[in-house]
């Protein structure tokens, strides 16, 4: 099963991943709703740090969903009519990359096996392997 893989030496902190994700899924360039949130920042100006918020298909959200709204094969899908917006998936996600918006859960679906974030990542920091 292919998963997203992140190499921080190649990351330039551009956020194109989050922009492309929200454009593809939500019809707007809006990183705050994206299902990926990789960032880099200077901690007190002295150390370059990375927030590697991306889904690596660990399946913890799927295992903990109380309603069965989340299914997992080679990708994760959320059935919104079934989703009650309890937020358990978001709370349990180890990478804090699940978004709860208007009481519905939004989780990376790998763009059906052809991730857009990988396509726009300029230096190949993100791969789908």
């Amino acid at each position: 099963m292919k998963r997203l893989k992140f190499s921080k030496e190649k990351c330039i902190g551009c956020q194109l991943c989050a922009q492309a994700c929200s454009a593809t899924h939500d019809g707007v360039f809006m990183p705050s709703r994206a299902r990926i949130g990789i960032e880099s920042y200077y901690d007190r100006g002295g150390v370059l740090k990375y927030k590697d918020a991306y889904c690596n298909l660990c399946g913890i959200c799927f295992k903990n969903c109380p309603t069965g709204a989340i299914t997992m094969t080679d990708k994760i899908l959320v059935d919104h009519p079934t989703c009650i917006g309890c937020g358990t998936c978001a709370a349990k996600c180890p990478r804090k990359v699940v978004k709860i918006i208007d009481k519905k859960s939004y989780i990376c679906d790998t763009c059906d096996g052809d991730p857009m974030c990988v396509k726009v990542c300029p230096q190949g920091a993100l791969q789908f392997v």
């Binding site: 190649k10 551009c14 880099s40 370059l48 300029p122």
Partner: peptide, 17 residues
Amino acid sequence: LQGKRGCGSCGLGCGNF
């Protein structure tokens, strides 16, 4: 070099930290 950084929406990443 400790790491590279670019601006928002950058496609290149010129910053050398």
